[in-house]
């Protein structure tokens, strides 16, 4: 028993030490965003601001026309929400197709899709830009929304989840005269809600945080989402701690809030996605 106590104590010390490393950058960001730049330069390292100010937020969100953070934020919201909705629709339909419909080549197509997951995405970057360009989507939200819906992993997750639902359910509904669409929409959709929540959360955060691709397809400052936008902001506020950190903080608020309310799903989803592979 004594040994167990020691283990527990040592690991608590370790966790506390690591927690300090993890918390300092976050705390530094939050408190700096409420300090005036003068305070930071003169008395840089007080933990709490001497004078609390919210001017940084006003400046960063609305005043700077070459880094319009509020606009970027809205662009990001539109892009991430639309992509999430689109992915949910596509993925649940496809998952149903591969799990419940019988047709020629079903397993072959599915296996082929799975195999392409091993293919590194970097190779398609340059031609994808050309496709977006020929569709006239450069600087258009669609450039950031649509290509992300081609992914395969979510279909795999949803199909896997559907396989866990007994086929008897569908059979009895079919005997009662239900069509495929009815089985899909009335029976299966409500049952796969947990996995759809997971897909939605991951799609939203991935879309919100995507960096390289949107920085290629957006060069109009007004149209771009916030994640590539921050790169411009960094250049603009290279020597202005307060404003730079305020911008960064604004950008992480949505995923942070989402996480607060849906922690449970994030945790479950990770074991879900690694479990099926393991």
């Amino acid at each position: 028993m004594g040994k167990k106590r020691v283990t527990k104590f040592v690991s608590l010390i370790f966790l506390l030490f690591m927690a300090i490393i993890w918390i300092v950058p976050l705390l530094y960001t939050v408190t700096s965003s409420f300090k005036s730049e003068d305070d930071i330069q003169s008395s840089a390292f007080t933990i709490l601001p001497i004078h609390w100010v919210i001017g940084n937020y006003q400046d960063v969100l609305f005043e700077n026309t070459s880094a319009p953070v509020a606009k970027w934020f809205m662009n990001s919201l539109i892009i991430s929400v639309s992509q999430t909705v689109l992915v949910l629709a596509i993925v649940s339909l496809a998952g149903f197709g591969y799990s419940r419909m019988k047709f020629k080549g079903r397993n072959a197509i599915f296996l082929f899709l799975m195999a392409t997951m091993m293919f590194p995405a970097v190779v398609n970057l340059i031609p994808l830009y050309k496709i977006i360009d020929s569709l006239g989507w450069v600087n258009n939200y669609l450039a950031a929304i649509v290509p992300g819906t081609a992914g395969v992993f979510n279909i795999f997750l949803v199909r896997q989840f559907m396989q866990g639902i007994p086929k008897d359910f569908d059979e009895s509904a079919r005997v009662d005269g239900a069509s495929d669409f009815q089985i899909f929409s009335k029976l299966i959709l409500p049952l796969i809600r947990p996995v759809l929540t997971v897909v939605a959360l991951f799609t939203f955060t991935a879309s919100w945080n995507d960096f390289l691709w949107p920085s290629i397809v957006f060069n109009d400052v007004e149209k771009m989402p916030i994640t590539p936008g921050l790169q411009l902001l960094q250049g603009m506020y290279a020597l202005d701690v307060a404003h730079a950190l305020t911008g960064a903080l604004v950008a992480i608020v949505p995923t942070f809030i989402l996480y607060l309310f849906t922690q449970k799903y994030f945790m479950e989803s990770l074991s879900l996605s690694s479990g099926v592979k393991g």
Binding site: V24, P25, Y28, T29, S32, T205, W208, N209, D210, F211, I226, T227, P228, G229, L230, Q231, L233, Q234, V241, A244, L245, G247, A248, L249, A251, I252, T255, F256, L258, Y259
Partner: peptide, 15 residues
Amino acid sequence: TLFSVSAVMIVFSML
């Protein structure tokens, strides 16, 4: 992990 690379890099470039 929920934060974008650009936001995190701004924070650490200042730190």
